[in-house]
Structures are given as structure tokens and as C-alpha cells.
Design a protein around this nucleic acid. Sequence first.
DNA 1: TCATTAACTGTCG
DNA 2: CGACAGTTAATGA
Length: 220
Amino acid sequence: MHKNSSNEELQPYLNKKTVLVCKKDQDFILEGTPVVGLYFVYQGKAKIAKTGLMGKEQIIRFAKPGEIVGHRGFGYSQEYQISAKALERTVLCSFSTEVITKALLTVPSLTYDLLTFYSEELNRSETKVKKFAQMTVREKVIDALLYINRKFGQSKGLLNLQLTRKEIADFAGTTEEQVIRVLSSLKKEKLLNTEGKKIGIERVELLSKEIADHNYFIDS
DNA sequence: TCATTAACTGTCG
DNA sequence: CGACAGTTAATGA
């Protein structure tokens, strides 16, 4: 998506963007709130989640710079089906639904990009269903860690995304305690490093091997 | 110093 | 495996 910033065809639309700066932990989309437009992450990181009954939260995915947020908001739905929160200081560009609609109708490359994005998203959520149904807690936690590694990478041996164990649990579909237990046993097996809140993956290949049976799509 | 938060452990259904 | 209770360590008002 970001690569389109250079496209001249898009310039008239880019001028209509609104820049929004979020502080850490700030929500910029609330579930059930009227749709106002579409967001792109320019800087920072965000988490996209759905809150179920009983305050249980399911983290759908994380977004990094260049990614789109709130895409399910336009079209027919009147309200956002998800909520999004900045994980750190995050800069967002937002476009109104009208602007996006016009842009999509006139710039094919943008439409194509969005289509690709949707298709990947659908793939992800389909394999996620399978994962949640078939994987053990240990595998789900490993899977979550590998996802974070793929998306954000590591620097000096630690994951570039700092999450609480609770957030990892909400993403993996378990509870905080289970995550802690898996984490500490992985640490004992020397597959993992842990420094307080920070986590480092020592042997990515070994972890991938454990969930290989479930990885139909490498990038899910 | 006290209070809060997060990481962690033990145990039970 | 999930839920609850309880301990410990770090942090900050």
C-alpha cells in the first residue's frame, strides 16, 4: 500500500488525507463505532482486536507501517467490527470513505493492491480457524511468536515487538498463564530467551519444525 | 513507603 | 486445559 505514495494518479487523493498521531495505548478505532474511513499506519505499530463477551479479547493481527487498518469498515457496514489500538506512539493517515471510493474507482493499481490484501487476510483467517481447532496450546504460542518474528523481526536477539504475556495469549487464543508456562519451558529447552517482558527466539528453525504439520501456508 | 502492575507458580475441577 | 489464588519483583506516585 505504501508503495503507492509515489503514484501520481494518487496525489489528488493523498492530499485529502488526515494525519493522526496516537499516543501509546490509544484507541483509534472502537468496535461498534460508526465508520469514518480507512487508516494507514505510517509509523509505529498497532493491534487489531475484537472483544467478545466477558471482556475476552481476541487479537486478530498486528499492523506495522505501510499496512491498512479498518478496511472492513467501508462498503456496507455502518459500524466497525473491530477495534484498533496503538502499541506505541503511532502516526496514522486516514481517508474518508468517499475519498477512498473515488480512488479505488480511478486507480486500478490501488484496487489491485487492496484485492491482494483482502485475499491474504481471508487466507489468514481461514487457517486461523484450523489452528485454533487443532493446535495444542504450546503450538499456538509458538505459532504466535513466529508470526511476530516474521512480521517485526528481532534486533539484538530480541523481538522488535514488545507485548505483555496477556497480549500474546489474546493473540494465540489462550490464557496468560498458559503462555507463561510455554514460555518458561521453551526457555528451559534453550529455544528461547527471556528478559523480563522482552522475548528472544534463539532457534527459529527448531520452533518452526514443531508446528510444521500445521503450516499449510508459511505466511499465515 | 505504599500501591499498582506484570511475571510467575501451585493447584483444583 | 482453563480458572483461581497467591507470591515475587519492578516501578512509580
